[in-house]
Each structure stands twice: as structure tokens, then as C-alpha cells.
């Protein structure tokens, strides 16, 4: 598993496509959890987490299952935790859950890459 993180518009998807131009990208904002379990690459994983929360599912449990059932998946996860703590409890929960799921993914991933201005920084493992 490769985890690609970074803020909005930092070149996360471009990095995946540069590594392998054939990669099929699955949008976490619109796919079902089952789609994610079979996907080669899920982007907007933070949106999938939000959808799971809205559906009353446990995103942390799902993320663990994804790590086990789809171990070669590439996950693109936005970094969203660097703002002020949101006043709205649902937003707070969302932000915290993304952090928790990010830790699970980073722990299972052999490679973690953080994108800044289109430049990859390898935080864990190595890239070819």
C-alpha cells in the first residue's frame, strides 16, 4: 500500500499518474465502500470517510479492513487537520476521524509520500 498525502491541489493525483500512467483512479467522494475495497487507487479518501460517517459506519474499522483486503491499493488522503478546531461537532468528528484513519493507513503502508508544490517528500519507505 502507498499512501499519498498533502493539502488541496499539491499534485497528489499527478504523482500517482506519473508513477503509473495506467492507474485507474476511484473517487472516494462518489464510490461505494465496496468499490474502494477493489480499487487500484482511491483519491479523496477523506470524502469516503465523511460518507461512511454519514451512513453511520465506522471509518476506522473500514480502513483497517481496506488495509487487509486491498493491500496493494494506493490511497490519496488530503491533509485537513491544520486549521482551527471546528465549532460544529460533526466537523470536529470528521476531522478527528480523518486523522485516526490517516494513522492507520500510514502504519500499514510501506510507502508514505507527502506532496508539496508538486514535489514528493518520502516520509516512509522509498519510491522508485
Amino acid at each position: 500500500m502507498i499512501l499519498i498525502i498533502g493539502g488541496k491541489a499539491q499534485g497528489k493525483r499527478s504523482f500517482v499518474m506519473q508513477q503509473d500512467p495506467e492507474t485507474v483512479l476511484t473517487d472516494g467522494a462518489h464510490c461505494s465502500p465496496e468499490d474502494a475495497l477493489r480499487a487500484a487507487c482511491v483519491f479523496n479518501y477523506h470524502d469516503l470517510i465523511q460518507n461512511l460517517l454519514h451512513a453511520g459506519d465506522d471509518p476506522a474499522a473500514f480502513t483497517k479492513r481496506l488495509c487487509t483486503d486491498n493491500p496493494n491499493c494506493k490511497i490519496i488522503l488530503n491533509e485537513i487537520g491544520s486549521g482551527v478546531v471546528p465549532l460544529d461537532p460533526a466537523e470536529r468528528r470528521m476531522r478527528e476521524t480523518v486523522g485516526i484513519c490517516g494513522c492507520i493507513l500510514a502504519e500499514h503502508a510501506e510507502t508514505v509520500v507527502r506532496m508539496t508544490c508538486g514535489i514528493p517528500t518520502v516520509l516512509k519507505g522509498h519510491i522508485s
Binding site: G6, G7, I80, P86, M94
Partner: peptide, 8 residues
């Protein structure tokens, strides 16, 4: 600047 990492 780096913007867009605040989750909003």
C-alpha cells in the same frame, strides 16, 4: 503560500 490544509 501553502493554503488548503485546514479541512475547510
Amino acid at each position: 503560500n501553502q493554503v488548503g490544509s485546514d479541512g475547510i
